[in-house]
Amino acid sequence: MPEFIQIMISGLSAGSIYALAAVGFTLLWQASQTINFAQGEFVMLPAFFVLALMSFAGFPLWLAILAAIALSVLLLGAIFKRLIVEPMISHGTLPLVIATIALGLLLKEAVKEFYSPLGQPFPSLFPQEVFVVAGASISIPDIANFIIAMGTIIALQLFLQRTRTGRCMQATAQNPDVAQILGVDVKRMVLYTFLINGALAAIASVLITPVYLAKFSNGEVLGVVAFTAAIVGGFNQIRGALVGGLVIGVVDNLSAIYFSAEYRQAVPLILLIVIILVRPQGLLGTAEGRTV
């Protein structure tokens, strides 16, 4: 039982970070029908901003993190939208998918060539201490990651529901034409979505990278996890992506211990296939009009 609690907690902690990436992915889909195949690389990159700022500009950790978040809002949000998504949005989804695949490749190779092909240690944000509750050892970084990730998602949810801008963004996601008629600045709202995705990716990056090393290939796994979480939860709902992320985190950890470490990666994917075939709108999603 203590082992089970431990696994659940580390699963929820990892899952909440996956949820950050999945929420961003979902937001982009809602706002602009962008399936971002570079989402994994978006989560990989900001950690390198932090490392570069610390080692070349001599920033302290906290300042480097803030600057990295700002940088990724600018680069992965605004520039990504302006240079790649905007010119392609009228061509349909497939060219954009190809372009994001190429962008993922570009970011990965650029980090490999210009920073380092080796895994870099990343400073941990929280004391690496462990305390014991009811026989289960619980690490402080796990709890802190969970709190920060959930806090971010809750704040985002409040922003979307309680503020005027947030509601305009939701209107844009649901029906851009009607939103436009009602006086919503649709383009601006879509831009905000991209900025938020940049910030979410940066936060996820800073939280998850201390767990592994900062490496150019981190995005490969993270990207698949983000899609899986978004689809399992429901492609068109923020709380869907949240639940999806947590489910994937827990399932991933449970299957590594109780099923097979070798096929650990397979379990979330099988879950993905089953969900798509049985309930394509996801666990919490609402059915979209099916385009045949």
Binding site: T93, A266, L269, I270, L272, I273, I276
Partner: peptide, 18 residues
């Protein structure tokens, strides 16, 4: 036969990894 577009992309993606 059941799903299309991005869903199909993800099913096949999962299949490849499996």
């Amino acid at each position: 036969l059941r799903v299309q577009h991005h869903f199909l992309a993800f099913v096949t993606l999962a299949f490849n990894t499996l």
